[in-house]
C-alpha cells in the first residue's frame, strides 16, 4: 500500500555515552510536502535527531545510533552517507555560506564539492531557479560574483537554503534556521518555507513555539530524548494530550 509518508523513524535511539540515550526510541512518520516542527526545551535531543536524518552525527566519534530511518523506502542508516546527504538537504542555525566562494558558486557548491561538472547554461539555470525560489534573485542578480559573506544575515540564510535546494533533495532539514536572525528576516524565511513546501518536505527544529504554530502542519514535542507528542499542529496547540506538552506550551519550562 502506498502511503504519502516520505520519512519514517522506527525506534530511533541515539547516545553520546553508552547506556544514556540522548534520543530514546523515537517512532514517527512524516508526510510528504508538509512542514513538521520539532520542539522541546534545549537538550531534549531535537537537534540530535534532526542531524541523524542527514547522518551528520557520524562526523563525531562515539555517537551510537540504533533503529531505522527510512527515507523514500530506503533505510538511510544502511546507505552510503554521501548519498544520504544529497537526498536530505540541511540548513544550519547560523548562516554559513562559504566565505571563499561567490554567491553563484555558493549555490552550486553541492555540485562543485561532489565533483560534478555541468555545462555553463545548466549552471546558470540552476542558480537562477534556486535563487528565485528563495526570493533572492532580484536582490543579487547584479552581484552574483560577489562573495556570499557580503549579504545580510537573512540573505545569507536564504542563500544557504538555495544551496541546499540546488541538489534537489527529497527533504529539507532545518536546525533552528532563524534563531540568529532579526524578526523581519525571520518572517521572510517563514513565508519562503510555506512556498517551498508545495514541492518539498521540511522538518524544522525550533524552540520558538509561535514559529511552529505559524508555519508547521505537524508538530513534535520532545522532552528528555523522548517523543512525547506528535500531532497536527493546530490540535497540539489547542488541545495537547500530554501534560508535559501543555506545560511546555504554557512556558513552564525550557
Amino acid at each position: 500500500m502506498k502511503d504519502n509518508n516520505i520519512l519514517k523513524l522506527k525506534d530511533v535511539s541515539i547516545s553520546y555515552v553508552p547506556g544514556k540515550n540522548a534520543v530514546n526510541k523515537v517512532c514517527a512518520e512524516i508526510k510528504e510536502n508538509s512542514i513538521t516542527a520539532i520542539m522541546g526545551p534545549s537538550g531534549c535531543g531535537k537537534s540530535t535527531l534532526l542531524r541523524a536524518i542527514n547522518r551528520m552525527h557520524e562526523l563525531y566519534p562515539d555517537i551510537n545510533i540504533s533503529g531505522e530511518i527510512i527515507l523514500r523506502d530506503q533505510n538511510i542508516l544502511k546507505m552510503n552517507p554521501i548519498k544520504v546527504r544529497r537526498m536530505a538537504g540541511m540548513v544550519f542555525q547560523r548562516p554559513n555560506p562559504f566565505p571563499t566562494m561567490s554567491i553563484y558558486n555558493n549555490v552550486l557548491a553541492g555540485y562543485k564539492l561532489n565533483g560534478i561538472k555541468l555545462p555553463k547554461a545548466e549552471k546558470d539555470q540552476i542558480v537562477e531557479e534556486c535563487l528565485r525560489s528563495v526570493g533572492l534573485w532580484d536582490e543579487v542578480k547584479e552581484s552574483l560574483n560577489k562573495k556570499g559573506t557580503f549579504l545580510s544575515g537573512g540573505q545569507q540564510q536564504r542563500l544557504c537554503i538555495a544551496r541546499a535546494l540546488a541538489l534537489k533533495p527529497d527533504i529539507l532539514l532545518m536546525d533552528e534556521p532563524t534563531s540568529a536572525l532579526d524578526p523581519i528576516a525571520t518572517n521572510r524565511i517563514e513565508e519562503l518555507l510555506l512556498e517551498i513546501k508545495k514541492h518539498l518536505t521540511i522538518v524544522i527544529v525550533t524552540h520558538n513555539m509561535s514559529q511552529a504554530a505559524r508555519i508547521s502542519d505537524y508538530s513534535m514535542f520532545m522532552y528528555l530524548g523522548e517523543l512525547v507528542e506528535y500531532d497536527k499542529t493546530e490540535l497540539m496547540f489547542t488541545n495537547p494530550s500530554d501534560k508535559r506538552t501543555e506545560q511546555y506550551l504554557n512556558g513552564q519550562f525550557g
Partner: peptide, 10 residues
C-alpha cells in the same frame, strides 16, 4: 532528486 552516478561516489 537529481541522478548521480553511483560508481563516482565509490
Amino acid at each position: 532528486m537529481r541522478v548521480f552516478n553511483s560508481s563516482s561516489v565509490s
